[in-house]
Design a protein around this nucleic acid. Sequence first.
DNA 1: TACGATGTTGCATCGAATGCAAAAATGCAA
DNA 2: TTGCATTTTTGCATTCGATGCAACATCGTA
Lengths: 211, 211
Amino acid sequence: MAENKRTETTEGRRERKRRQTRERIEQAAMTLFLQRGFEATTIEDITEAADVSKRSFFDYFPSKEEVVFAWQDAFADRLMAAVAARPADESSVAAVEAAITATVIAAVDEPGLARGDLIHRTPALKARDQLKYAKLEQKLAEALLLRKGDDPLERPRMRVLAAIVIGALRVGAELWPQRPPSASPQDFAREIFTDLWKMLAEFGDEAKTRR
Amino acid sequence: MAENKRTETTEGRRERKRRQTRERIEQAAMTLFLQRGFEATTIEDITEAADVSKRSFFDYFPSKEEVVFAWQDAFADRLMAAVAARPADESSVAAVEAAITATVIAAVDEPGLARGDLIHRTPALKARDQLKYAKLEQKLAEALLLRKGDDPLERPRMRVLAAIVIGALRVGAELWPQRPPSASPQDFAREIFTDLWKMLAEFGDEAKTRR
DNA sequence: TACGATGTTGCATCGAATGCAAAAATGCAA
DNA sequence: TTGCATTTTTGCATTCGATGCAACATCGTA
């Protein structure tokens, strides 16, 4: 019985408290960041608000910045899963559109937007934010390649496709705040992708007659 | 005569020494970074090697990281100039290919490669590196848009084109170290772009039949 | 209950970065 | 050349993020 619990239900007091503390720190940190700004908030402010010692902060997060980006890994993983879940006979572009749309839609919530604001107005966070996109791109390329049976010849193709799509995601994220409020996230995503594929075809045509 | 000099040739002892000191710091810093690594080098190590006070470092560079990326602004400016210099009747894709190729070729030198290595193996620098690409992308989009007479309708198009091309540049920079040593930078660039435009056309086609 | 493992805390320390005021170097004009 | 105003350099103090270490507390388990 006790051994049964060990393998999966093992969220004893220890794990539970640890998770709770982590959430408390994250919560306190984000609240303070949004309230006074990132730089103006010290680790001590955070730990005081979360009622843990200053030293303990670094037992939960490797740095102040990581608190802001903690959710990113989960997002990347969900995106990879969404790509992997697409039917094998689907084209890469269709698969990536469906996967991105679904994953982004599921992630668009209020806290996400406030976080975006904070990042946008904090130079130190902007750099980390770009790194996030780079990692996302890598993982996406990886997932797309896996769909192609890990064919080495497809590698550069999928790398470029990932770069293009993540680029579009980045541009889309910038355009999002100034979208018509009537448009649903689905429609917005649909429109972005339609435009993107159209542009790709046009650029491809344009290139044929170059020089 | 003296007035003539004032406007452009005015590099008195002050300006000259300041520039020299800046170069000395940059030189010392990069040497030490490449030698012992970025993190393992302290500001004091640098200022000692450059024979200035610790405090003076921050009169020349806002942070340790900025020394590594000091050259980036110049690169971005040259890229913008190269785009602006392309004939007005040239297509955007042809213009961007020519401009990027020329600017990158001119910038591929030994120190550049060593710097790339350093950045690649230093997490803190990687983030800043991605930010560099983002800025480059913005400037490129700006320059491309200017060629189009600042037509608001072209803005998203040029943003996306810039994102695609800079994405390709990023992928290209990753692939560069493992290129066949026989290939000249020109050929390498030519090949990358040829592949890129081909992929764009293919993705565009693929998208037409999606769903 | 006692033991080992894990989690938490305080303390000391390092290094980056900033503000400030004194000191040095420079440009300029009398 | 000398004296004065401006800019540059420097030393000093301080704040804050981050890390290592050892003592202490808490928890799961034999």
